[in-house]
């Protein structure tokens, strides 16, 4: 009997924990006839630090970790190309693209790790308390909390004033007007109770953020062949194909709550979107350049392949 340790940085009430990780562990425990057991360390435990997930699993302190590619920044330059603005606003498409590209283009970034799944959330929105944003001009000088350097840079280009802030402090900062808004998908809007202090939501679908779910290779190799087969059966494609629906379902409550509260939800208009993309072109070029400077010579090729895979996914959904 083996007990595997899993760590992640989300509170144990999050869908990642309740809908994805816990059921996954139960499937494998059942499949192995109880041979493999799990112990999960979520946010609030010492192993729940968002910046340490990759390192912990590499060092073998935990056997499996779920974390963000972007923190600490720069560790997954290839995978993080999925963060480029306006690539896709669909969790399903982004997760599909990452998984399709993994063997040929991204594998190098996961040496020593058995990759169980890669995924990304639905396009984030711009949520504001007092000011309704529809155009680039509306953004001018707004203080906006952002989740990542890529989004910070994007907002700077658009004229806003990005603020780094721990998620737990967003509610009070919005309530007091220390910030004018925040960039988030719907799911944290619901879980942090932000609909109480927000009024407007601009569905800009401009960016996504990606996650890894990985196992220490030595831990995997130490499993019996039957156990390995069980892990394989419930990971990879079996997991990745579910993230589109999962993220949709995690986003629904936040959106419904906003509608029930009478908030205004606006889509970014097509002309406006074109203006934003044009404004952001220099930023995208320099982002690609940074990735190339980090030693990824085929950054353009990977970016193109991501676009192709996303188009492929969208096309398959149309039929």
């Amino acid at each position: 009997e083996t007990t595997l340790k899993i760590s992640h940085y989300l509170p144990s009430v999050h869908g990642i924990h309740t809908d994805f990780i816990v059921p996954w562990t139960e499937q494998i425990t059942e499949c192995t006839g109880g041979e493999v057991q799990f112990e999960i360390f979520p946010a609030g435990t010492q192993l729940g630090n968002v910046a340490r997930q990759q390192e912990q699993v590499m060092a073998g302190v935990v056997d499996i970790a779920h974390g963000l590619h972007g923190i600490p920044r720069g560790r997954f330059p290839r995978t993080s190309l999925i963060d480029m603005p306006f690539l896709t606003d669909s969790a399903g498409a982004a997760s599909y693209a990452l998984w399709e590209l993994y063997p040929d283009y991204l594998a190098e970034e996961y040496k020593g790790l058995k990759v169980l799944a890669l995924h990304a959330h639905n396009g984030g929105l711009l949520h504001t308390n007092e000011k309704k944003v529809e155009t680039m001009e509306d953004m001018d000088g707004l203080r906006i909390r952002t989740p990542s350097p890529a989004v910070s840079e994007m907002l700077s280009y658009l004229g806003a004033d990005p603020q780094g802030l721990p998620p737990g402090e967003v509610y009070e900062s919005l309530q007091r007007g220390v910030i004018d808004g925040t960039v988030f998908p719907w799911d944290p809007v619901k879980s942090f109770g932000l609909n109480e202090v927000l009024n407007y939501h601009l569905d800009l679908g401009a960016y996504t953020v990606s996650f890894f779910y990985v196992m220490n290779q030595r831990s995997y190799d130490a499993l019996s062949d039957e156990a390995k087969a069980c892990v394989d059966q419930y990971s990879g494609d079996a997991l990745v194909s579910q993230f589109g629906d999962w993220w949709d379902s995690w986003d629904v409550p936040g959106r419904e709550e906003a509608i029930a509260a009478g908030h205004e939800i606006t889509e970014l208009s097509d002309e406006e979107r074109a203006r934003w993309e044009e404004t952001l072109q220099p930023m995208m070029d320099s982002y690609l350049q940074t990735v190339k400077d980090a030693g990824v010579d085929n950054a353009d090729e990977i970016y193109q392949a991501m676009q192709d895979k996303i188009a492929e996914y969208e096309a398959s959904r149309q039929n």
């Binding site: 600490p72 920044r73 720069g74 910070s152």
Partner: peptide, 12 residues
């Protein structure tokens, strides 16, 4: 961490 080339989140 320095081998990974880690940097601070905003300013690098």
């Amino acid at each position: 961490r320095t081998m990974f080339g880690d940097t601070s989140q905003q300013l690098g």
